[in-house]
Design a protein around this nucleic acid. Structure first.
Lengths: 193, 193
DNA sequence: TCCATTTCTTGTCCTAGTTCAATGCAATTG
DNA sequence: CAATTGCATTGAACTAGGACAAGAAATGGA
């Protein structure tokens, strides 16, 4: 049950059995059906979720009412919205929604606090996790700016080879920052080769 | 001398006099002339720099040899490249370069380690710093995807009102992900109104 | 199983932004 | 103070990708 998340947290920092025991005891398990919105616009995100099973998306709604997907999270990924706590003045426009039936392990601010005070080494692990998200987001920003739609899609396929079978195509288009119609045309062109 | 950086680090976590003393004693001060490259492609970034004075840019070079600016850092901002340590396999393509004569306070991995072990509360402060960068990068990604060039430039002016007087216009275009010529045309249109 | 709804495809027309080239203007440098 | 180099501007021609519309295919719920 815990081996999946333990393996994940130990990827960059290793812990002893006692520390892992504390870690696991503080996790909240939750199964959530698909199409459930975990975080609404304007709410404070009071969780950090580790995906045991399933698929989740995080998205904004832009000024014209269009959804823009910022992140997909599948098995062994973390998802949360940290931006709200930063710009406390203007509420977050981020939504987090399950796309499939999901199982999670959850931290809330209180359990995270408790974890850090009882096993301080986790502070580092979570900092590295944060660092990873930053690196991924930065990479995504670079790709968005400097690659063509076709290149973006090809790269997406490498990075998430299983996703096209799991989520609707227009979600992928939204993630790539292109129109659903254009993605369809790109795919057609690619099968021709 | 230290009040500037102390004010910055205390923005989200407060420290007592002893802690700040440790913090300040571990800082390395460095003045660096303009047009100096602090980090080259393929190198490991072994510093986290706080800008006391001056202006710095961080950029990639894309597949066609074009520079894409990821971040400007001016007074009271931090700059570093954390992505290298993440994707250790494929070396970072990031450069960091001073655009003006600069003064910095620097941490390297060793001094940062020492800071965390002597005053663990700083681990939290640096995590929050990281969180802020992530929020900013995420916001930037969202803008890049869902706003027009004119909107992006207008927003940039709000966020960095002093920069157009300090850095070349084509750098701003590169940051916004548009061509220098098009930025020029946007500016012309804006002055007409 | 059938109906309804969502998703995907395809074509046509359109536009925001690019590329290229020419020109004038500052700013460095010797 | 020339002379070179880099920077901003402008215009003209071009293109990647968007918007719209309408049909086809897939999915899902009762």
């Amino acid at each position: 049950m815990y081996s999946q998340i333990n393996k994940n947290i130990e990827r960059y920092v290793s812990f002893n059995a006692d520390e892992l025991k504390i870690f696991n005891s503080l996790l909240e398990y939750k199964a959530i059906p698909k199409k459930t919105i975990l975080l609404h616009e304007g709410e404070r995100c009071n969780f950090e979720a580790f995906v045991i099973k399933g698929c989740v998306r995080k998205y904004y709604i832009d000024a014209n009412g269009f959804e823009v997907i910022l992140q997909f999270a599948i098995e062994n990924a973390w998802i949360s919205d940290i931006s709200f706590s930063i710009y406390e003045e203007n509420p977050s426009r981020v939504y987090i929604e399950t796309l499939e039936d999901c199982e999670f392990f959850l931290f809330n601010p209180a359990t995270k606090e408790e974890l850090f005070s009882r096993a301080p080494k986790f502070e580092r692990a979570f900092r590295i996790l944060m660092q990873r998200s930053l690196a991924v987001t930065q990479d995504r920003l670079f790709n968005t700016i400097s690659k063509t739609a076709t290149e973006k899609y090809a790269e997406f396929l490498e990075q998430y080879p299983a996703l096209p079978q799991r989520v609707a195509q227009h979600y992928i288009a939204s993630y790539l920052g292109i129109s659903a119609e254009f993605l369809s045309k790109i795919r057609k062109k690619m099968t021709k080769l």
